[in-house]
Design a protein around this nucleic acid. Structure first.
Lengths: 118, 118
DNA sequence: CTGAATCCTACAAGATACTG
DNA sequence: CAGTATCTTGTAGGATTCAG
């Protein structure tokens, strides 16, 4: 630790950043995390403003990155459940410091009623 | 803490996410953090691939968000030094868990020689 | 040296209609 | 219900040139 600078390298973020850096990336992961299990239409309702095409494309992305898991029930009408993978749950933990940091300056409280880090 | 769910609210990120979520946002903050002080052209060199217009626009953004500080020396040739604000330094700390998380799955090591979290 | 001005391209993401 | 198929728009970000 002496001969090594305190430099931080961001390379580890290289791949995932393209997914979780997108507008809805963290939002979706967190929403599923908050509920445990969510279906497509439930996500559409919770994430106010997202379009079906955007949501579908994001879900594919998140699944490919192994942040969420998808279970399909061959019923009529069809049922599909989304949940977080272990990796997804760990991500949700990992961003807590970032949220705490952001809360410090927050003018956000004007629009948000959450009181987690106040 | 009992009557409160373990739900996480992302609203605090609302404003800053538009800055640090951009392609070069965290990169610039971190690069300045690694060096302490950096000039415009030094950033151009370190951040391989960034264009002058993009860098200039990002620096304005980051300054507006009070993540970096800018000091202008009225010399010839002109000299401008960028450094992290306290808030910027705290941000840099806050993303460490995220980097550690990302490192766990890392195929990143192929392209990156940093060994901080291995 | 430190940017600003201009032009251009790629892509995220919204709106809408439709299907198995 | 859970998406797909199109179409459109806004904007990030690159390339290049110029200026104080």
């Amino acid at each position: 630790m002496k001969n090594q600078s305190n430099a931080i390298c961001l390379c580890p973020l290289d791949g995932v950043i393209d997914t979780i850096g997108k507008k809805w990336g963290l939002l979706i992961v967190n929403e599923i995390g908050n509920h445990g299990i969510l279906r497509y239409n439930e996500l559409m309702s919770e994430l106010k403003g997202i379009s079906p095409s955007t949501l579908a494309s994001m879900l594919k992305d998140l699944e490919k990155e192994e942040l969420i898991e998808k279970e399909v029930f061959r019923e009529i009408p069809p049922r599909v459940e989304y949940s977080l993978s272990t990796r997804g749950r760990e991500l949700r933990e990992a961003i807590i410091p970032l949220i705490k940091w952001a809360s410090k300056k927050g003018n956000y409280s004007i629009h948000c009623s959450c009181n987690l880090f106040k």
